[in-house]
Structure formats: structure tokens, C-alpha cells
Amino acid sequence: MGRIDETKPFIPVRIAVLTVSDTRTAAEDRSGETLVERIAADGHVLAARTILPDERAEIADQLRRWIADPGIDVILSTGGTGLTGRDVTVEAHRDVYEKEIEAFATVFTMVSMQKIGTSAVQSRATGGVAGGTYLFALPGSPGACRDAWDEILHWQLDFRHRPCNFVEIMPRLDEHLRRK
């Protein structure tokens, strides 16, 4: 297991939260609120938040706008990762990924197995990188958002986490786009 190196400084990350739902309003968005609370509690910055319907093109367009925004380092979406016909968040994420973080889905499944057993196979949580921005698509339940944050993202979005973390390589995510 990793550890926190207290000799390193904490570096706040700017995070956007996208809730994907045909029915939820801001007042009913428990999953988005779960993420917002954890972002603040860990000392990160909520850079943006919105709710969109389960429409692949709209989701992908919003992801692209946030990827292009230099004030956003990470995008977390919640909802639309299941198996039903309207669940298109994963496809929208993959429409914009430059690289997929395959191990995120694997680790999320391992965490979920401890909580919900074999029902974990119904999640298509995913992670990736585009334009120097991290993107993670999480299931639409508050429990799944808690699990993803508490067991994975809390640690990987903390620069002090050892042996490694997402924040320390953030400056190099778009190195292929820079002139050599």
C-alpha cells in the first residue's frame, strides 16, 4: 500500500464534476454532491459543475470544453456507466480519450467487489487522459462515488502519495503536444 509523505507539499487539484442523468436536478444530485463534498474536504478546488442528459454528443462536447479549459485538471462524471440503452457516458469519454487508464477500471472493480460482490460486473467505470486533463467516469450511485474517491482518487490526486500519484505526472500529460 501507499503512504503519504508529509515532507512534500499538498497541491490542490482543480476538478470539474459532471452528473449525467435524464431525470436528476441539482437538488436531487446526491452522487454529484458526494463528489463535491469529498473534493472540498480533501482541499481540492471545485472548478465547474453541471448536469447533462444521457446524450453521447452533449457529454463528449462538455468534456472537450472542460479539457480545453486551463483551469480544469480533472473531470469526474457520475452516471451513465451501466448497461442500459441510455447509458452512454463511457462511450462519450472514449470519444475524447487520447489514452485510457485501463487499470482504473480494474482497481474500481476490485474495490466494488468488496462492497457489492459480483454486482460489480455491471459497472463500466473508466478513466483516461486527453489534452493534459484526467477524466474518470463513475457510476451514478453515491456509494460508488464514495468508493471511487475514498479508495482510489483520494490517494492518486494527492501529490504526497507514494510511491507515485497522478498529480506528479500531470505536467507531462501533454508533452507530446509541445514543440521539441
Rank of each mutant, 00 (worst) to 15 (best):
M1K: 05
M1L: 06
R3L: 07
D5V: 04
E6L: 14
E6M: 11
T7H: 05
T7Y: 00
F10D: 05
F10N: 03
I11Y: 00
I11M: 09
P12S: 10
R14A: 15
A16C: 05
T19A: 13
V20Q: 02
S21Y: 08
S21K: 07
S21D: 11
D22P: 04
T23G: 08
A26H: 04
A26F: 08
A27L: 12
A27M: 08
L35Q: 01
I39N: 02
A41N: 09
D42S: 14
D42W: 12
H44R: 12
V45M: 07
A47D: 09
A47I: 10
A48I: 03
A48R: 13
T50I: 03
I51N: 05
L52D: 06
P53M: 12
P53H: 12
E55L: 14
E55G: 11
R56L: 12
E58A: 15
E58P: 00
A60E: 03
D61P: 00
D61F: 09
L63N: 04
L63Y: 14
R64I: 03
R65E: 14
R65A: 15
W66H: 05
D69H: 13
P70V: 01
G71S: 13
T78H: 11
T78N: 15
T81F: 00
G82K: 07
G82P: 07
G82L: 12
L83N: 04
R86M: 09
D87N: 09
T89I: 05
T89M: 04
E91T: 06
A92P: 04
H93T: 02
R94L: 02
R94M: 03
D95N: 03
V96H: 02
E98S: 11
E98K: 06
E98W: 10
K99W: 14
E100F: 00
I101L: 15
A103P: 00
T106Y: 03
F108T: 06
F108D: 02
T109Q: 11
M110V: 13
V111I: 12
M113A: 11
Q114I: 00
Q114G: 14
I116A: 01
T118P: 10
T118I: 11
S119T: 13
A120E: 04
A120Q: 05
S123I: 11
R124N: 05
R124Y: 02
G128Y: 02
G128V: 07
G132L: 08
L138A: 05
P139C: 06
P139Y: 02
P139M: 04
G140L: 03
S141Q: 07
G143T: 08
D147H: 10
D147F: 00
E151F: 02
L153M: 06
H154W: 08
W155H: 15
L157E: 03
L157Y: 03
F159T: 01
F159I: 06
F159Q: 11
C164F: 11
N165F: 08
F166V: 01
I169T: 09
I169A: 04
P171A: 05
P171C: 11
R172T: 13
L173H: 04
L173R: 09
E175W: 08
E175Q: 12
E175K: 10
H176F: 11
H176V: 12
R178V: 14
